[in-house]
Design a binder for these strands. Sequence first.
DNA 1: TAAGCGTGGCT
DNA 2: TAGCCAAGCTT
Length: 348
Amino acid sequence: MSRFTSRLLTWYRDNKRDLPWRGHPDSYAVWISEIMLQQTRVETVIPYFEKWMKRFPTVEALADASEQDVLNLWEGLGYYSRARNLQKAAKIIVEQYNGKLPRNLDALRKLPGIGRYTAGAIASMAFGLDEPALDGNIRRVLARVFDVNVPADSPTGEKVLWGLAAKHLPNGEAGDYNQALMDLGATICLPKNPRCLICPVMKLCKARELGIQDQRPVVRPKKKTPHYVHAAAVIVRRIANSPHVLLAKRPSKGLLGGMWEFPNARVNGDPAKELTQAIQTATRLKVREKEALGTVEHAYSHFSVTVHPFRCQLVSMSENQNLKWVRVEKLEDYPMGRIDRQIARQLI
DNA sequence: TAAGCGTGGCT
DNA sequence: TAGCCAAGCTT
């Protein structure tokens, strides 16, 4: 075992974080937590994980649920294909693996939503297999300690970093090793202002020795995000003596796939002036503007948007399976993105 | 291969 | 403040 690994594991024994899924020895809990944690902070995940394990305690429970139930629980976590893939994988696990996650890297890797990192994490943490894992934290720690001077997200950088992760992996302790690297990255080897003075591997760290911690890992320049303006129609109607609004279901793939929203369309100029035509083109709904309801701003990963919701009167609509009248009191039952949820809350 | 995919906290 | 960033995967 290298000195790096030895110091890392010693530090981990005394400093590992107490996390809900670490109290669950079963592979199902490890799987769910790993998917939720993709690109998502631990503090954000914890309440979702607790709720999930109560609602879907087993692979079978998840496989039997409807996609809408799953998306509803996932609402607010983001990257919704993760939720849809979890359910697809659960069905495969029930049908092909007798309800148990396969204890083998290649079979795990083939399940929807499980890539190289997640397969390695499950294999090592849940099954004790000697497999490395490389996530954002581990990438940063290794890039600094071993001074990787090529972009970490380039093909060369990936190869070097996976190689380092494997090279220092201790036989029989891969689970602790992978989690130790992640905890170190999350609590000490921070992206900004790393706490080098209390780092267990400070004396072995090449970036620290050179004073270039803030230049590792090397990152490639990112593109600026464009900004868009949308107009949305809030169409209210009384049905059976209770107010309903018209919602549209988004396509199952792409942005906010399978989520519900207020009928909307992108506009180029004045949202009020373009509202009627834009909505009709996008949804085949004919509407008449009644009242502006303020604006909602949101920044996505690759663009930002300003939405102008308008209370509208419905003039006519053609048959469309993706449209549904929903009782205002029942809006919480329909999974929505952040913007539409905010508009929905204004109606209650 | 590089772009697409959410959200919220931090600086 | 506006951008950066976080336990990545899919196409």
